[in-house]
């Protein structure tokens, strides 16, 4: 059985002037350890779908199951990382990373040690005592990643986590998250509207189309192991996705390139 099963899921919002369907009829199975990118234009319901999987704002039709259990509230077995980091500005880096651990009944020393370990993983040991405001955007997002990893979740949900960063920082963080996903064997669901980012990171890319959000296709990325942004293979896959993006909407097909 897959880790995440999305079955005919739909989300309809009640609005003043009636209802609005953010997405509908989404079917998706995600395996343990996969890196999945949700790719699509603005407004196609990527964030809404991610929020539904993470348990913040549940689907109104169909179902989403994780580990065979219907998702009904957030859990620290699957943590979300946001575009604007969501760090607590009144806590130091160390204390921010400890936030999720405070619910786990660890001793103070254990907590500190575990936080320090994940701060080291994202390379911020030198900055562990400063407050988030004193860090660059990229460093802040690293703190958020460390904080999420510290509770040892099975799944990481990431909503355009690198969207606010400059190109170079973004590439660095992409490498980091790729390394971490391999080392730590996490399942990652990653929302982006950057095609290259999706191709660089994902094992499979889920492409959505807007109005209302629908699954257009699921694209397997055959770039196992080492990825090179300039290699011919990378460019071929990227071009293929570009092509798909400008194709007329069809019902879902699994694409193997």
């Amino acid at each position: 059985m897959s880790l995440i099963e999305v079955k005919d899921a739909g989300k309809t919002f009640a609005r003043d002037e009636g209802t609005f369907t953010a997405f509908e009829h989404i079917d998706l199975s995600i395996e343990r350890g996969e890196f999945i990118c949700l790719l699509g234009p603005s407004g196609c319901g990527k964030s809404t779908l991610l929020n539904a999987m993470a348990g913040f704002d549940l689907v109104t039709s169909g179902s989403i199951e994780i580990d065979g259990k219907e998702v009904c509230e957030p859990s620290d077995r699957y943590v979300t990382i946001f575009q604007n980091y969501g760090l607590l500005p009144w806590r130091s880096v160390q204390k921010n990373v400890e936030l999720g651990l405070e619910q786990k009944g660890l001793s103070k020393a254990e907590r500190a040690a575990r936080a320090a370990q994940y701060i080291e993983l994202v390379g911020l040991t030198a900055h562990k005592d400063v407050h988030p405001r004193q860090l660059s955007g990229g460093m802040q997002q690293r703190v958020a990643i460390a904080r999420a990893l510290a509770v040892d979740p099975e799944i990481l949900f990431m909503d355009e986590p690198f969207g606010a960063l400059d190109a170079i920082t973004r590439m660095k963080l992409q490498d980091d998250i790729l390394r971490i996903s391999r080392e730590q064997q996490k399942t990652i669901i990653f929302v982006t509207h950057d095609i290259e980012e999706a191709v660089y990171l994902a094992d499979r890319i889920v492409i959505l189309t807007p109005n209302p959000g629908r699954l257009k296709c699921i694209c397997e990325v055959p770039l196992h192991g080492y990825r090179d942004r300039t290699s011919g293979d990378f460019l071929r896959v990227r071009d293929k996705i570009f092509e798909l993006f400008h194709m007329k909407a069809e019902n879902r097909i699994e694409y193997f390139i």
Binding site: P74, S75, L99
Partner: peptide
């Protein structure tokens, strides 16, 4: 977002009040 982060880590009242 602070409340979302708190929910994500399972922080509930009354801790939510004084921690966040």
């Amino acid at each position: 977002i602070y409340l979302k982060v708190s929910r994500s880590f399972g922080i509930r009242q009354p801790q939510l009040m004084w921690k966040v």
